[in-house]
C-alpha cells in the first residue's frame, strides 16, 4: 500500500528575472514572482502575452520545443530547476501538467491513470489500484467511472477525458500541477466540474493555472498574476501579481484595471 504523500508546504516556486527566447525573438522577459505552496495561482492576460510560455518554463516543457532558451532563475523549493545537473524528466514527476485540449492516451481509463506510476516503477497491482482510485477520486471522476475502468478513455465525454488527464497528472503525486486553460475546450457544466475539482485539489498540490477567462480566475484562484505584451517589438512582462481579491477589486496598475474591466484583451 502506497501511503498518500503529503506535500503540504512543498511546491513553492521562486522566479527571478525569467526570460524566454525563441530563436532570436524574446517572448517574455524580466518575470520575477513567488508562487505559494498549496494555493491556486492564476496567470491572466491577453492572447499572446506569454502565459503558457511562462507555465511551460515551470516543468521545462519548453526544452522539448528545441529552440527555446530560458534565462534567469527558477527555484522549486529553493532548488534551481534549470541547473545543468537537474534532470527535466525528474522535475516533471514533481510538476505535473494538464493541457488545453484533453489528451488521454489511446488506452483504458485505468492504464491512463497508472501510466505515470508505472514509469516510476510501481508494478504491484494493489498499489496501482489504490493510486488509480485515489487519483480519480481527487479528480472527481471516481464515482462516474469506477465500474468501467477497463473502458477506453476515448469513449468518455470531453469533460470526463479532461478529468482523466487531471487524475493521470495527480497519480505521480506531484507537488505542483500546471494547468493550461484546462476548461477552454469544454462545455459550461464540465467547466464547472473542473473548477470544483481545482478548489479541492489545492489541499494536495500547488496549482498554477493559465486562463483566458477572468471570471474563472476570480472564482478559483488565491493569487493572480497579470501579464502583458504591449507590442510585438517588446517582450511580454509581468505587470503585477497579488491576492486575487485585491487584484479584482483594487488593482495597483491602470493596465490591470483596464484589462480586468474589459477595456482591452
Amino acid at each position: 500500500m502506497v501511503t498518500a504523500q503529503s506535500h503540504a508546504g512543498k511546491g513553492s516556486f521562486d522566479l527571478h528575472d525569467v526570460s524566454v527566447t525563441y530563436g532570436s525573438e524574446t517572448a517574455i522577459a524580466g518575470v520575477s514572482m513567488h508562487i505559494e505552496p498549496n494555493a491556486v495561482t492564476a496567470l491572466i492576460g491577453p492572447s499572446g502575452c506569454g502565459k503558457s510560455t511562462l507555465l511551460r518554463c515551470l516543468n521545462r516543457m519548453n526544452d522539448e520545443l528545441g529552440n527555446a532558451t530560458v534565462g534567469g532563475r527558477i527555484l522549486l523549493d529553493g532548488v534551481d530547476v534549470y541547473d545543468k545537473e537537474y534532470d527535466p524528466v525528474e522535475l516533471r514527476t514533481k510538476v505535473g501538467q494538464v493541457f488545453q485540449k484533453p489528451n488521454p492516451f489511446p488506452m483504458t481509463i485505468y492504464d491512463n491513470v497508472a501510466y505515470g506510476p508505472r514509469t516510476q516503477g510501481i508494478r504491484k497491482r494493489s498499489d496501482l489500484d489504490a493510486l488509480v482510485e485515489r487519483s480519480l477520486t481527487r479528480a472527481a471522476l471516481w464515482g462516474e467511472v469506477k465500474k468501467d475502468l477497463k473502458k477506453h478513455a476515448f469513449e468518455l465525454s470531453g469533460g470526463q477525458q479532461q478529468r482523466v488527464c487531471i487524475a493521470r497528472a495527480l497519480a505521480t503525486e506531484p507537488e505542483v500541477l500546471l494547468m493550461d486553460e484546462p476548461a477552454s475546450s469544454l462545455d459550461p457544466i464540465s467547466t464547472q466540474q473542473i473548477e470544483d475539482t481545482i478548489a479541492e485539489l489545492k489541499e494536495y498540490v500547488t496549482i498554477v493555472i493559465v486562463t483566458h477567462n477572468m471570471q474563472q480566475a476570480a472564482r478559483i484562484s488565491d493569487k493572480t498574476a497579470f501579464m502583458l505584451r504591449e507590442s510585438m517589438e517588446h517582450p511580454a512582462f509581468l505587470v503585477e501579481v497579488g491576492e486575487t481579491r485585491t487584484m479584482f477589486t483594487n488593482p495597483g496598475d491602470k493596465r490591470t484595471e483596464a484589462y480586468i474591466t474589459g477595456r482591452f484583451g
Binding site: 516543468n59 516543457m61 522539448e64 524528466v89 525528474e90 522535475l91 516533471r92 514527476t93 505535473g96 501538467q97 493541457f99 485540449k101 489528451n103 488521454p104 492516451f105 489511446p106 501510466y115 505515470g116 514509469t119 516510476q120 488527464c165 493521470r168 497528472a169 505521480t172
Partner: peptide, 22 residues
C-alpha cells in the same frame, strides 16, 4: 498527435519511454 507525446513527457517519461509506451 503531438498532444500525446507532450502528455507523456509531462508525466516524467523520457522520449524513448514516450515512443514505445504511447
Amino acid at each position: 498527435p503531438n498532444d500525446l507525446r507532450q502528455g507523456s513527457l509531462a508525466l516524467g517519461n523520457t522520449r524513448w519511454q514516450t515512443t514505445y509506451k504511447v
